[in-house]
Design a protein around this nucleic acid. Structure first.
Lengths: 233, 233
DNA sequence: CAGGTTAATATGTGCAGACATAATATTAAT
DNA sequence: ATTAATATTATGTCTGCACATATTAACCTG
């Protein structure tokens, strides 16, 4: 007898996932090739290809031309982190967003920052320290360096109306970025701004964005205690 | 004159990204439909579809049937976090991996954990506390609850040979999982195990995995100070 | 003019066939 | 026996076509 045809790539994918999960196909084992699966499922090879390609991207299958497709032995699962602008992050929590510029000046960055950005140490940049608030409570403290050469209009922006974060996302864009997540003890300045105690554990995000080879901005985000970043695997 | 044909979906995608990045197509603006782009680029509509669908997944385009395709105004960029097994994470850093089981017992979970897992509070589970080491230095402290009903063979595992983490990845698998990242101050026990001081800021990962509706395991990972999780946007 | 029905349209996805490409296996040559 | 050339194979992707589906726009109808 023939099984009912699986003719959508999602249903093919679901069936393949079932076989992986229920150990019909063991980790490390090679699975039938696309043509065979297409014949079994009663669909076109392109449909099987779409299903398997997607599973390979998710890390559940290893695929190599000629060698075939295998079930990954130690699947490196992938979690997708959304990186929204801070205002949306606050508003999604149902809170009223506000931001306050603490300090802004044109100056050259410390050697460490210049090094990260591949810029000469004496390059004049825009340095900003700002606080993002949720329902008037400190939410996030931001320490940002902006490469003026790549975003000259930033000098005319009214930062009471829009945060640098949002302005940059809307007006400059970037082609690639680095993201580092870590934990740090609050220093005295951070503790006061975030209304917590010195030494409190802060969730910290360091982000550097580039437009081609040119650095756009480097920012350190220190979230107020209690912040949790959530996602699914 | 006609431009040279872009006949691979990557080259179409590159051209579309260029137009977004260089503001040929402004944020919020509608872009030509797939058929028009296919005609312009000299390729099939399916090729354009593949390129645009991928950009929509990355958050750079908004697509809706009939309404067309628009450049996202506030792109929610997505970062992909790899979740490898801890041994591989240590070995990728060039260190020698070792793990030590601190404590293991069959007992019922605290109400909080039972609640997360949707299990009756009196369900007997396997509770483990373990330390993962990199070059004999504490790397990660793990506090794990395992649902015995979903992984009965776990009771026969020799945890000197393999960590629960690795055994579960290889032998049970899961269909979905929740992941929460946060920062916490080290309590006295954690401080001693991780060879640091009480109150040190620790990077903490809470992970719960499910097989369909059945919970598999809930684990809290507290990384030793200095740990940084890195990725690209 | 309000509200519901119908038509139009852009994306989503399926199919069959073809060729490209990478990697392996086989064969031939030295 | 070792190395180089060649054949084989599974995945990767393009084409052209078709139909499905979601959503908007247009059209009635009272």
């Amino acid at each position: 007898m023939t099984a009912p045809a699986l003719q959508s790539w999602q249903s093919v994918q679901a069936e393949v996932m079932r076989r992986i999960n229920e150990r019909v196909w063991l980790p490390g084992a090679i699975i039938p090739n696309e043509a065979e699966l297409a014949a079994e499922f009663g669909c076109a090879r392109a449909t099987v290809n779409r299903a398997l390609r997607d599973l390979a991207e998710k890390g559940l299958l290893d695929r190599r031309r000629k060698a075939g497709t295998r079930v990954t032995v130690n699947p490196v699962r992938k979690a997708i982190l959304d990186i929204p602008i801070t205002r949306h992050e606050v508003e999604r929590r149902g809170a009223v967003y506000r931001h306050a510029l603490i300090e802004q000046q044109r100056t050259s960055p410390p050697p460490v920052v210049a090094g990260w950005l591949n810029l000469a140490p004496d390059t004049e940049m825009l340095h900003q320290r700002a606080l993002h608030l949720a329902d008037s409570q400190p939410f996030l403290y931001e320490d940002r360096w902006i490469n003026i050469a790549e975003a000259p209009q930033i000098l005319d922006v009214d930062f009471d109306t829009i945060s640098a974060n949002e302005w940059l996302v809307q007006n400059v864009g970037f082609t690639k970025g680095d993201l580092t997540l870590s934990a740090a003890n609050a220093d005295p300045v951070e503790a006061e701004l975030l209304a917590t105690q010195e030494g409190a554990a802060l969730f910290v995000v360091d982000r550097t964005t580039w437009n081609g080879a040119a650095p756009i901005t480097q920012v350190r985000l220190a979230y107020a205690p209690g912040f949790r970043m959530q996602t699914t695997i």
